[in-house]
């Protein structure tokens, strides 16, 4: 898939997944790469940026196995931002789908 296109959508996916439940980086990477082919490494710069912009907050939590994990959770500001992105995405994708239907069916 086109890299730039994926980058934009990745942000939305990350926010939506975290809104469902707080997750740590590895978990998030697994959840995303299950459906979208993405280099896990690029997820961390994205998480860092979203945290800096205060859409996400982080906290460390102990786990039963292995070391403490850095969890990401959605802030109030992040929720607003996610809702905006979802709205934009819906408008955009339905427009694209309309074109496809018009031409290819």
């Amino acid at each position: 898939m086109n890299v730039q296109f994926k980058k934009g959508v990745l942000e939305l996916c990350v926010l939506v997944l975290i809104s469902k439940k707080d997750q740590y980086g590895y978990e998030l990477a697994q959840n995303i790469s299950r459906k979208i082919e993405v280099a896990d490494g690029t997820l961390y710069p994205l998480l860092r940026r979203l945290t800096k912009e205060e859409y996400l907050s982080t906290y460390l939590a102990e786990s039963t196995e292995g070391p403490a994990r850095k969890y990401y959770s959605l802030t109030e500001k992040g929720t607003d931002y996610m809702n905006l992105l979802v709205k934009e995405w819906n408008q955009f994708s339905s427009a694209v789908n309309d074109f496809i239907e018009e031409v290819l069916t």
């Binding site: 740590y24 980086g25 590895y26 978990e27 990477a29 896990d40 490494g41 961390y44 998480l47 860092r48 196995e65 292995g66 070391p67 994990r69 850095k70």
Partner: peptide
């Protein structure tokens, strides 16, 4: 801070 995230990723991945 940046490196820490990747170290954590490796630790969890190896544990899995």
């Amino acid at each position: 801070e940046i490196i820490y995230d990747y170290l954590e990723h490796f630790d969890i991945g190896l544990a899995n």
